[in-house]
């Protein structure tokens, strides 16, 4: 019997009767981070890190949640749980689980690069490592993030010169704040779609610092946006909400933009390769760094990535995520 098992409701620790990021309602849930496919509604009790609490409350309303500092631990029936930075978004954590000297780590989502706004990834050691593998193919190699920020600012300033609005889509939690943090505020005004602005409010309340921006409201006229950069969630681009912009260039910031096909499919004018997940090199480095023998990839190209790890000498086996099987291009509000 493994310390952590993959059950119908999610990853489960039987010894402690605790689930990690369960997708169906349970009694006790430890949450790695605030994205909606990891923190779902309906659990009786939630545990997460302090900075994640505001996010989860913002999403799920008044729930019963206990929060911890990174590094803090608690023990249930002899099993010790602790939270460690995953570098994915603000408040994201890897969950370390120890029982009678055996150590498991569940990464949730993670990236190795320090994005300047999320708590930076901590390399843990363990025996068994449940790792995400969203971008577990050798074609996914991220460019230097500072070059990408430069590209975004250059694109914005070129558009601004032509009095064109720059509309950049990014997930409302994580990516949006990361980009906000690196925008060159001298180029022009910055606006955020309501969904992002609301998330920002929750984060600012929790102590996160963000540059000045305005919320897109119905009173604003097309001219107000002419040299602006507007941040919006991906779903907004196909909606009536877009009609308020006259001359607009659409950019997409996502790891999926690494492939031409994906970018052309979105019909975006510009794709910026910016991801909050580990790339191929990052995944392999993290796995090596744990010293673990047993690796369980989940999310993304799990079967291909597992086969690769086996060839590399690991004990690797994919964990299929419920509902979506092996995940198709993740178009929902996750990475």
């Amino acid at each position: 019997m493994s310390l952590i098992e993959s059950k119908e409701k999610g990853l489960y620790c039987k010894q402690a009767d605790v689930y990690i990021d369960p997708w169906k309602p349970v009694d006790k849930a430890i949450i790695t981070h605030g994205h909606s496919d990891h923190s779902r509604k309906g659990h009786k009790a939630y545990a997460c890190v302090h900075s994640s609490k505001a996010i989860i409350r913002h999403r799920l309303g008044p729930i019963n949640v206990t929060s911890y500092a990174y590094g803090d631990s608690f023990t249930v029936n002899g099993v010790q749980f602790s939270f460690h930075p995953a570098g994915h978004i603000i408040g994201s954590a890897q969950i370390r689980v120890e029982y009678k000297g055996e150590v498991w780590v569940i990464t949730g989502d993670y990236k190795l690069d320090d994005d300047g706004i999320s708590e930076a990834y901590e390399q843990l050691q363990c025996h068994s490592f449940i790792t995400e593998s969203t971008f577990g193919l050798p074609v996914y190699n991220w460019p230097n993030q500072n070059e990408v920020y430069d590209d975004i600012n250059n694109w914005w300033s070129e558009n601004a010169e032509e009095n064109k609005t720059s509309l950049l889509t990014a997930y409302s939690l994580g990516k949006a704040q990361r980009i906000l943090h690196h925008l060159d505020v001298d180029i022009g005004p910055i606006y955020c779609h309501g969904a992002i602005a609301n998330m920002n409010d929750a984060l600012i309340e929790a102590g996160v610092k963000l540059p000045y921006y305005e919320k897109v409201t119905p009173e604003l006229k097309p001219d107000d946006f002419k040299n602006a950069l507007v941040l919006a969630p991906p779903a907004a681009t196909g909606s009536a909400w877009m009609k308020r912009f006259k001359q607009v260039s659409i950019g997409v910031a996502s790891g999926w933009m690494a492939l031409r096909g994906a970018r052309r499919r979105r019909g975006a004018d510009r794709g910026f390769i910016l991801s909050d997940h580990a790339d191929w090199k990052g995944l392999n480095m993290a796995i090596k760094g744990t010293g673990a023998e047993n690796i369980y990839p989940t999310h993304g190209y799990t079967s291909i990535f597992s086969k690769w790890l086996v060839a590399e000498g690991y004990n690797a086996q994919p964990i299929e995520t419920a509902f979506i099987g092996e995940s198709l291009e993740v178009e929902t509000e996750t990475p």
Partner: peptide, 19 residues
């Protein structure tokens, strides 16, 4: 692994360039 990746990318020239 190259072949599996190529199937996902869908373009040989691109797959080679990016691996």
């Amino acid at each position: 692994l190259f072949e599996e990746t190529y199937h996902v990318v869908g373009d040989l020239a691109e797959t080679i360039a990016k691996v």
